[in-house]
Nucleic acid binder design. Structure first.
Length: 775
DNA sequence: GGCTCGATCTTTTTT
DNA sequence: AGATCGAGCC
């Protein structure tokens, strides 16, 4: 058994990891603390199954939550077992795997296999349509709220009919039930699935068609699931279905890192694994290979302060104590960001780290703004994960909408998107009339346009209805359009059809180019947004074209559908670039699964972490705590904790207090004060600073004591600064201002000045010709 | 049908 | 504070 290969697969693993890797059959639960080598266990186990147990790679299915995690597994397996074997494995996200199953077998559910996938924007648009159809007011019934109720229902595997049956308590539920039903009908008409449908419909397919399920059970004899604590009901059932026959189910997770309850993840799935599978073997991975003991102690202190759960892990490491975790209070979010950026610059200048080693993590995307501004002002390269997603930009979605319509003209949402992009005189009223007319006919809008064109027209693509019958265009109801509108609509139809025809001769990039040329896309962007923003948006479109170029090596028919599917299912974190030497700014949620030598956790304040909307319920509060835990355990060597004294949100500024989670960290784990001659309080803020000092004096939280107004006596960096904080200065262009801080950077003195008229600037004293003046 | 202005909302986290 | 949306105007 212990061949040379096996020993090679096992030699770098600790005892617990080895045990996990070597169990071939039966259910296994691996509880893996952060940094305990969970991905390594997953990949080595797959390799072990193939190499040592002789399992055909085609029989192995590994499911993850992000494409990034899937990609990582694939790459590592590629290295472990070689390209040929790796290519036969099925590794993908839940959504991707389900989409693949549905492409193959959705016909059993009476649906077409060339379905499109609606993202959240499409979903919202469709929901707006639903509300209009049902004569409901968007103000009273916000589309997103309704959709979120439906989404939760789908995650719980509750169908529209069941929802109506189960939720009769309130009028609101009644409304949701009606919307749910209509929403599904419209999805069906557009031959579309939303994200939740991919899971739900796959489960339904397996439930209603046992032979189909049996086929997949026979194929996937070994099932592995990553981040099992994040599974929702639908995912849980899906996995249960697949593993029901062979029961070779290997799940890896960490209840302490469960942070997705808000989107339906049910922590009970992992907590009750042993009840679902009484013969399960449970393995704890507690040795951490990532962080220093200092970092682990802080993380552990916070997580242990919460209500204790099942499966308590005690993390330990051989990495040594390392640098103490430090805590800093910024004056406001800008000062907080400034401090972070200063420290980043400091670490880089000292030569200890590269920009790419560092990450700034926060609870809400909005917090990235101050950080971005500070990084930009300092000229440090960075990437922001999330926020406005690339694939959600209007110009990108417009191009994608063309591609989707070409692929599936029944897609009403995409068709509606491009009616008037570029402007061609099909406005809201025409669109509405067309939609209503199509509803009357009971066909997708595209088909209604064909009817409008008359029976003689040669169609580029014949569309069949759900019964598989070509719709009879003999006696259409009178169309509501005058001659001019009709002509406009028919020109549009002809345009779409010509693109559909063009597709046959072109590869994906050719098709994109054709769309862009024939819509005069660039000119339209310039016209709409002006030369600067227009060009910027055009560059985004070019970037999309670059992405499309990756697909032209596929078979021509597969290019478009594969592209559309992958584009629909990318997550922000999938776009994270680890190769580039840039600072990463990322939300705590997205940071799960990542690691960085240096991590800054910012905004550790009541109301942000824990978030104000998650403070009142115990369960939600505990999830916030785990969020802190996830963030802290991303750090390998240095962890910085920050909060701001006051913060502006929604245009309102208010005083905030440090997160309660900080209070559960023993004082001795925290480095008492920062010793860097950078941070200062401008004179005009003294009153605020004093208030703050008195507040801490009153509360006797001495470890929060700040040294803002003190220029430290750090010794290794002899200070020859000529400008001290508070000094009034004049600049030939910026006018008069107050020095905020100053320090020596590479032989020059870098002075930060707050100019009365021009705001804060960062200047090099040798070049700036700053003049001292008396205030 | 497209424009400007003011009212209103945003910010929890996402496949 | 900034973006988005709607009403009212051209």
């Amino acid at each position: 058994m212990c061949s040379r290969q096996a020993s090679k697969l096992l030699e770098d693993l600790n005892a617990a990891q080895q045990k996990a890797v070597q169990i071939i059959d039966g259910p296994v639960l691996v509880l893996a603390g952060p940094g305990s080598g969970k991905t390594r266990v997953l990949t080595h186990r797959v390799a072990y199954l193939i190499r040592e147990a002789g399992i055909d790679p085609g029989h192995i299915l590994a499911v993850t939550f992000t494409n990034k995690a899937a990609r990582e597994m694939k790459e590592r397996l590629h290295a472990l077992i070689g390209a040929d074997h790796a290519a036969d494995l099925t590794i993908g996200t839940f959504h991707k795997v389900c989409a693949r199953f549905l492409r193959r077998d959705v016909i059993h559910l009476g649906r077409e296999r060339d379905f499109v996938i609606y993202d959240s924007d499409d979903q919202e648009r469709l929901m707006r349509r639903v509300l209009k159809d049902l004569n409901l007011n968007e103000k009273q019934y916000p589309p997103r709220a309704i959709h979120s109720a439906i989404s939760s229902a789908k995650n719980e595997l509750v169908s529209a009919a069941e929802y109506a049956r189960l939720n009769r308590a309130s009028y609101y539920d009644e409304i949701v039930a009606r919307c749910y039903e209509r929403y599904q009908a419209l999805l069906h008409e557009s031959n579309a699935f939303d994200f939740d449908d991919l899971l739900f419909e796959t489960v339904r397919l397996f439930q209603q068609h046992p032979p189909v399920l049996a086929k997949y059970q026979e194929r996937y004899r070994y099932v592995l699931v990553d981040e099992y604590q994040d599974t929702n009901r639908a995912q849980y059932v899906l996995i249960k279905q697949l593993a029901a026959q062979r029961r070779n189910l290997f799940v890896v997770g960490d209840n302490d890192q469960s942070i997705y309850a808000w989107r339906g993840a049910d922590i009970r799935n992992i907590l009750h694994f042993e009840e679902d599978y009484p013969d399960a073997q449970v393995i704890l991975l507690e040795q951490n290979y990532r962080s220093t003991q200092s970092i682990l102690d802080v993380a552990q202190a916070v997580i242990n302060a919460g209500g204790q759960q099942k499966h308590v892990k005690q993390l330990w490491t051989e990495n040594g104590v390392g640098v103490q975790v430090s805590l800093h209070e910024g004056y406001d979010q800008n000062d907080e960001a400034q401090w972070v950026v200063d420290e980043i610059a400091h670490l880089v200048l000292q030569g200890d780290y590269r920009l790419g080693d560092m990450a700034v993590m926060y609870r809400t995307n909005a917090q990235s703004r101050a950080v971005e501004e500070a990084l930009m002002a300092r000229g440090l390269r960075y990437q922001i994960i999330g926020g406005m997603r690339f694939y959600e930009r209007k110009e990108i979605k417009d191009v994608l909408a063309y591609l989707r319509v070409i692929h599936n003209p029944c897609d009403n949402v995409s068709l509606a998107r491009i009616f008037n992009v570029p402007a061609r005189g099909i406005g809201g009223r025409t669109e509405e009339a067309l939609y209503r007319w199509a509803s009357e006919l009971g066909v997708p809008v595209y088909q209604a346009l064909q009817v409008l064109a008359g029976p003689d027209r040669t169609t580029a693509r014949s569309v069949t209805d759900a019964d598989g019958m070509t719709t009879d265009p003999v006696s259409p109801p009178q169309s509501p359009f005058n001659a001019r509108t009709r002509a406009t609509l028919l020109a549009f139809l002809e345009f779409i059809d010509s693109l559909i025809t063009a597709r046959e001769q072109l590869d994906l990039v050719g098709l994109v180019d054709t769309i862009l040329e024939r819509t005069h896309f660039r000119a339209a962007l310039q016209h709409e947004y002006g030369p600067d923003e227009g060009e910027e948006r055009w560059r985004n479109v070019q970037e999309l074209r670059e992405v499309a170029a990756d697909y032209i090596y596929l078979q021509r028919e597969a290019q478009l559908v594969t592209f559309l599917e992958e584009v629909a299912l990318v997550a922000d974190v999938d776009t994270l670039d680890e190769q580039q030497d840039v600072v990463t700014c990322i939300t705590l949620h997205q940071a799960k699964g990542l690691e960085f030598p240096v991590v800054f956790l910012i905004g550790l304040e009541e109301g942000l972490l824990p978030h104000s909307r998650s403070m009142d319920e115990k369960d939600k509060l505990e999830e916030e705590r785990r969020l802190f835990y996830v963030g802290a355990t991303r750090a390998r060597e240095r962890l910085y904790l920050l909060y701001a004294f006051r913060r502006t949100s929604f245009g309102r500024t208010s005083v905030s207090s440090p997160s309660r989670f900080l209070a559960s960290i023993p004082q001795e784990l925290i480095k008492p004060a920062m010793k860097r001659p950078i941070v200062s309080v401008p004179p005009q803020s003294y009153s605020a600073a004093q208030r703050k000092v008195s507040r801490f004096a009153r509360n006797d939280t001495s470890r929060f004591a700040r040294n803002d107004t003190v220029v430290s006596n750090e010794s290794e960096r002899p200070s020859t600064v000529r400008f001290l904080p508070g000094q009034a200065v004049r600049h030939h262009m910026f006018g008069e201002g107050i020095v905020m801080s100053s320090k020596i950077v590479e032989g020059d003195e870098e002075v930060t000045v707050n100019f009365a008229k021009k705001g804060q600037k960062r200047l090099l004293a040798n070049f700036a010709n700053l003049e001292r003046i008396e205030p």
